[in-house]
Design a protein around this nucleic acid. Structure first.
Lengths: 153, 153
DNA sequence: GTTCCTGCAAAAGATTTGCAGTGAC
DNA sequence: GTCACTGCAAATCTTTTGCAGGAAC
């Protein structure tokens, strides 16, 4: 039901992604690999700035330009999902397909986001999708509020 | 119709908003009024840029800075809802309370957005909200796809 | 007259692009 | 050796802020 465990997947989305990129004619540069590995470890979406900072703190600094370019490639191939949660910031997370599908909780005070999923919600969305004047490709649910930590403070 | 929601029918949202701003100690400048009236007419959310262009085309040009400032005030008072639908763009629409509650369809080809609502979806969200580790304040559902026009093309 | 509202211009961020050097194949 | 990948710097674009003049009260 509610919360999802952040299971570090050993089946490695990073490897699949690297393979898919390779199949699509891309080469394997260091920057791209570092980004893929970082994204693969994440339980939830990161923004370009967060990726940049996190890599820098690991002495694997990658330029902003490269980060944006890699994001663009990955999104185009469908390996990355874009998540827009607030204050005009765009975040990205690995698209792991059905089993990993989830939505986002956003704390409006500290800005932190976390994943959740719910079968009933998915059913409701699937049902309504069939009635819309749109060829539906994907959907996104964002719930705003105050997280436990902030609500207690 | 049976019961009326909390929304008074006689005054427009623009008038209510102007009144609420007045109550909050704000004055009634021309730029602010023009923005309120434009927003009141809209069936769906507009971005700051769209507001700027639309007002300019009516010879009621308002500076960008004022648009952003008015948006900020209105959002703070709860008269405006922020909608983030894609490509890092933030849009705003009047928060008319319960009866006007809706979500958004986004055409990923032409960028156009339109409103929709569904009682079953709301129920599902209300139900899941109760199980989350978050004091929920609001929620947002965005469905992406290709609109009828673009899908046909 | 005082205080707030506006527009202008500059600043602050995020994202994109042009270009040249480096590295993958 | 060729062509893609990367970093740097500059350009774009959106949003925010400082300031001075004008408008609301």
């Amino acid at each position: 039901m509610g919360f999802m465990a952040s299971t570090p997947q050993r089946s490695s989305w990073a490897e699949q992604a690297a393979q898919a990129l390779s199949d699509a004619g891309y080469r394997r540069g260091g920057a791209r690999r570092a980004i893929l590995e970082l994204l693969d470890e994440q339980p939830c979406a990161l923004s370009a700035v967060e990726i940049h900072e996190e890599l820098a703190s690991r002495n694997r600094e990658v330029s902003r330009a490269s980060i944006y370019r890699v994001m663009e490639e990955l999104e185009a191939i469908g390996l990355l999902q874009r998540v827009e949660v607030g204050r005009g910031v765009v975040r990205y997370e690995p698209a792991r397909g059905g089993s990993g599908h989830h939505h986002h909780l956003v704390c409006d005070r500290c800005g932190r986001i976390s994943p959740f999923s719910d079968a009933g919600l998915e059913r409701a969305i699937r049902r309504v999708s069939g009635t819309l004047p749109l060829q539906v490709s994907e959907h996104e649910v964002v719930i705003h509020g105050a997280c436990a930590t902030c609500a207690a403070a």
